[in-house]
Design a protein around this nucleic acid. Structure first.
Lengths: 243, 243
DNA sequence: CGCGTTATTGAGGCCGGTCAAACCATGTGG
DNA sequence: CCACATGGTTTGACCGGCCTCAATAACGCG
């Protein structure tokens, strides 16, 4: 087992997760190894547009290795609201009732994920447990931002805020650099997240492109004027409240 | 000390809190006594319209005995979004970073509260800890509902949903019965919570009165057609996910 | 009673919704 | 290699829910 400690976990997703967790709490060697061990677990795949978990349904925690998913709520008449997004490197569920159990979770693209049960231990106050709690807290902070966006911001402000959130999260996951990243979402999904119609979202996006705030080629976004976007969206990087 | 166990904690707020917690997890005698003990602590008061806590600021947990407060976010140009409400019987903060640290907390009325540090212990997996976690989870569920309201519902649907949430929470706190309760909020506060202008909120409220869905005298609300309201708002009572 | 806050009402305008069609990329099977 | 189907993007025209501005009525309180 000790030989495994020194063996680098070369899967880039795991490396990124490890870096992210270490930024939240100083993991012990044993814990770091536990995280690295996820790389050797069999990865599962889920197709796009599948219901990964129904609302209220309990299931073991998952580490998302690749692909995007979302928490979603559908109104009886078909209106759809995306509550939040799940990106590579995110952990879904905590082994006990949490945000994961409160909404249905749908895959937006093809997903790759592994069981992350090995990360959640009992109630001991370990560094890893603190890091995971901090991760959970970041999700709640995203929810708060989402409320502000939907409640009091204009279309372009909402879009700016969401893009900045994506950039920050993907950068933390090692999937963005220089404000440039892949965003495998249709405009309909963006509209359902931002509480807008597809048509208006489209026009908003075009306006922002015209103003040189962002660039969009295929599914690759580039934030061209991060400072301006931040000011538009009143967005600031998530606090580092380790718990 | 054993004599205190049998002595009833006669403060009605504490009785309600105890009932609420017991509904979430079967407390031990010692824990019930710990909760009841809060009644003998000195209560503090805070005037209306005060910033109880600034965003990011850490502080000991509080049990709200009387009065209403809210988490709020103000945009640079003055637009205000109320994230969620804090009602009597709610616990603010958990002794470690939580939702409480993520937003500024403001009193909406005069408040009465006591320090609730005695409730939060270490990381042990006790029934009380589980009940408190379930309480925390309910707050997150309210956040989710708020996102759906603001993102995809019309003004009257939002209002219906919020009123149903108030009724459920106040009933749990022993402050509502028969769909009737005191709601010490100005229409401006309601508007800032629901992402509407005061003017439109006012008209929405009147429309709902005219339709016989609710009644409003002074600051007392009566839900006249709960079933209809539920259907309008797509609202359902919070799940009893004990953690 | 007088003043500040809150509630209500009216008029007009804009942001964003809806409907509908055209355009485009991708992929599939003949 | 093309005809066609499919899902996504883009446009245009029109509409309506909600906002803003502004003024008036109704409280509530010292």
């Amino acid at each position: 087992m000790s030989c495994l400690v020194t063996a680098p976990a070369d899967a880039p997703e795991i490396v990124a997760l490890l870096a992210r967790l270490r930024g939240l709490a100083p993991l012990t060697e044993e814990e770091a190894e536990r995280v690295a061990g996820l790389a050797r677990l069999p990865a599962r795949e889920t197709a796009a547009r599948q219901e990964l978990r129904a609302e209220g349904q309990s299931a073991p925690p998952l580490l998302l290795l690749a692909g995007w998913a979302c928490r979603v709520h559908i109104l009886p008449d078909g209106r759809r609201q995306i509550i939040s997004f799940l990106l590579p490197g995110d952990i879904i569920g905590r082994g006990r009732p949490s945000l994961a159990e409160l909404c249905s979770i749908n895959s937006l693209t093809r997903l790759r994920h592994v069981d992350a049960s090995s990360l959640v231990t009992g109630g001991e106050e370990t560094p890893l447990a603190r890091a995971l709690r901090a991760l959970e807290l970041q999700e709640v902070a995203q929810l708060r931002d989402q409320v502000v966006r939907l409640g009091r911001q204009m279309a372009h402000e909402r879009m700016a805020g969401l893009l900045l959130e994506f950039e920050a999260r993907l950068t933390a996951a090692g999937l963005a650099s220089g404000g440039c990243f892949a965003m495998p979402l249709t405009q309909e999904v963006l509209a359902d997240a931002l509480g807008l119609s597809v048509v208006h979202l489209n026009r908003t996006l075009q306006q922002m492109r015209r103003e040189g705030l962002i660039a969009l080629k295929g599914r690759v976004v580039t934030l061209k004027q991060t400072a301006a976007l931040r000011s538009i969206a009143d967005w600031q990087p998530p606090p580092r409240l380790a718990g």
